[in-house]
Structures are given as C-alpha cells and as structure tokens.
C-alpha cells in the first residue's frame, strides 16, 4: 500500500472550527491536519463530541454560518482550490459533484415531500447538462447500482415508503450519482441494524472500487473500521491524536487513548466469565475547560509531569503519526 507516493486528493491543514455560543467562543476542532488519497478509505474515530462530524461538515462548509467560523489559517485543499476560503458559488460546484456526503440518519436525511427520483435527479441537474429523461434514466441506474430492488418502481416512491436500509441506499446513490472523488460518510451505518450495516458497508466497498472514490468514514465503531478502512485517524477533544494504517493501529497503538479505545471493544471468547469490559475512566473534557498540557492527561494511566505542562505535537514517525510524549512503543 504505497499510497503515500501518490498525490492526495484532499489536503486538510490546520483546520480549526469555532462555534459562537452563549458562554463564548469555543474551538470544536483544533488544528486538524490530514491527507486523503485517491481510492483509500480513511476512518475517523473517537468518542461522541470529539469533533468527527464537525471536521466533515467544516470541509463541506455545511455548518451554520451565523454560529460558526473557521480560523484564518485553516486550509482545505481540493484540486488547487482552498475550500476554507472559497466563495459559496465555488463551494456549490464542489458539493455533491466533487465531494459528496452521506449522513447518519437515513430516516430524516431525505426530504419527505419529494419522490426519491426527484431527489436523485436534483444533484444531476446542478452538476451535469443531462436532460430530464437522461437524468431519470441515470437515477434509475444509480438505484440499480446500490442494489435497490425494482428501481423503476422505487424511483417514483416517497422516502416514507422505504425501509431505513433502502433509504441509506438512496442516500448512497444520491452521493455517488455525479461520481465524486471524495465521499464523506458520517456514521452511515449507526442508525441501521447489524445485518443491514454489513450490507451497506459491502456496498460502499464495492462502489469505492468501481468509481475509485476516496472515502472518509466517520464512525465510533472500531469493528467497522477494521472491516473496511485502510487508514485510521483517531480524534480526541477536537485534536487529531493518532493516524496510522489499520494494521498498525490495531496491532500496535501508540497513543494511550487509542490503546484504551481498543481495549474497550468487546471480544467474543476473549474474556472470562464475570470479567467486566474495560472502560476509559473519566469523561471527555469540556471544550470550555480544557486541561493544560495533553488533553487526555487526566484520564491517562501513564501520565507524567510534562504531560500536564506541555501539550505534545502531532509528530510523524515513519508512515504514522501520533501526539504523545510517552508513546507506547512496541514492535513497529
């Protein structure tokens, strides 16, 4: 996997997004930098509130304008264009065409009062010059691609007539109909039951290979990461704390938080009867009241004095990086 040789399709540098709240300005994601390479699947994991969704919506600039802003040094480079500083008109040419998105809640993410065909054709009408008939044909084709049964009939149905899994298939078809280079999937399987989850993940995997789309998969399910991701980025309290290939991360985590996350996955047969599943002590610090030094320090079992004093930097070590004074080491 020599993905590092090719040029990344999306370069995120120093992305910081702030929210204006009643209690003052809060930095939800702080100095996030990463690359996304063509055809790869990058998993973004972390607990709730760590900034996964904010990262994805910041890239697409979908956060409410009157409540949020990006710090001026933020850069999101896509095909020579800095999305963080692009105009709304430039953003519209990117959204849905070059970078598409799938959301967590298929039940509410489709517009309830329009037929799914119309919703599929909408993106095509913005980004292609296909005529009505061709757009409809393309919509039916896309439904077939996502293995929707009877696409010719389904195209004229409303979202409420479909099951959750089918709606997520429609969302995927909608995201992929303009063959985007990047697909951001924000917890696409969280709201679905386990068998449907597996089907949707298989489908995404298959379509990724077919369209050579780079996928940014946001999830808190490490099982999903192990199943379909190539690389993983772990976030904690608005910071990127570790980036590595799936293999390296699962077999040899460097950051204590990553290690603790991996330990808290239930394993079948790996534990004795009556033994409790390890959890990470404490809670994620409030963004209004971050600890000095490392953000994980008050929950970290390896804490030293300098962890409290200085915040470590995200440093590159070979083809992985982590943000820790005391990496766990072990066989690389």
């Amino acid at each position: 996997m020599s993905k590092t040789k090719t040029k990344p399709v999306l370069e995120v540098r120093n992305l910081s997004t702030c929210f204006k709240t009643d209690q003052g300005v809060v930095t939800a994601i702080d100095d996030v930098s990463f690359d996304l390479y063509p055809g790869e699947t990058l998993g973004i994991v972390g607990e709730s509130g760590c900034g996964k969704t904010v990262t994805s919506k910041s890239i697409m600039r979908l956060l409410p304008e009157h409540l949020s802003f990006q710090k001026p040094e933020s850069r999101v480079m896509y095909g020579g264009l800095n999305l963080a500083a692009a105009t709304e008109a430039e953003m519209r040419t990117v959204r849905g065409d070059k970078i598409a998105m799938i959301f967590q809640e298929p039940m509410t993410s489709l517009n309830p009062v329009f037929k799914i065909g119309a919703q599929l054709e909408e993106a095509l009408s913005y980004h292609t010059d296909l005529d009505r008939k061709a757009r409809r044909q393309r919509a039916i084709d896309m439904l077939r691609q996502v293995e929707m049964p009877e696409p010719e009939r389904r195209v004229d149905e409303y979202p409420h007539q479909l099951s959750g899994g089918m709606r997520q298939r429609v969302m995927i078809a909608m995201a992929l109909c303009c063959e985007p280079e990047v697909l951001i999937a924000d917890e696409p399987t969280t709201a679905l039951d386990v068998t449907i989850q597996a089907q949707i993940l298989d489908l995404m995997e298959g379509l990724k290979n077919k369209f050579n789309t780079a996928i940014m998969l946001i999830t808190h399910d490490l099982g999903v990461v192990a199943q379909i991701c190539d690389r993983v980025m772990v976030m904690y309290a608005g910071r990127v704390i570790e980036v590595a290939s799936v293999r390296d991360l699962f077999h040899n985590p460097q950051h204590p938080y990553t290690q603790a996350l991996l330990r808290s996955i239930p394993k079948s047969g790996g534990r004795q009867k009556g033994e409790r599943l390890p959890t990470i002590k404490g809670i994620v610090p409030s963004l209004f009241n971050l600890p000095p030094g490392c953000r994980f320090q008050d929950r970290c079992e390896y804490r030293e004095e300098r962890c409290v004093r200085d915040e470590p930097l995200l440093e590159q070590h070979g083809n992985r990086s982590y943000r820790c004074h005391l990496p766990l080491g072990g066989a690389q």
């Binding site: 919506k57 697409m60 979908l62 709304e88 519209r92 040419t93 990117v94 959204r95 849905g96 065409d97 598409a100 998105m101 959301f103 809640e105 509410t108 993410s109 489709l110 517009n111 309830p112 909408e122 993106a123 913005y126 980004h127 969302m171 909608m174």
Partner: peptide, 15 residues
C-alpha cells in the same frame, strides 16, 4: 434545522 436541508446543501443546491 432539519437533516434534509443539510442533504440538499451537500448536493450543491443554492441557498
């Protein structure tokens, strides 16, 4: 504030 509004924006719809 509904989800489908974000979906529409993500598709490239104008405001």
């Amino acid at each position: 504030g509904r989800d489908y509004i974000i979906t529409a924006k993500a598709k490239g719809a104008t405001k």
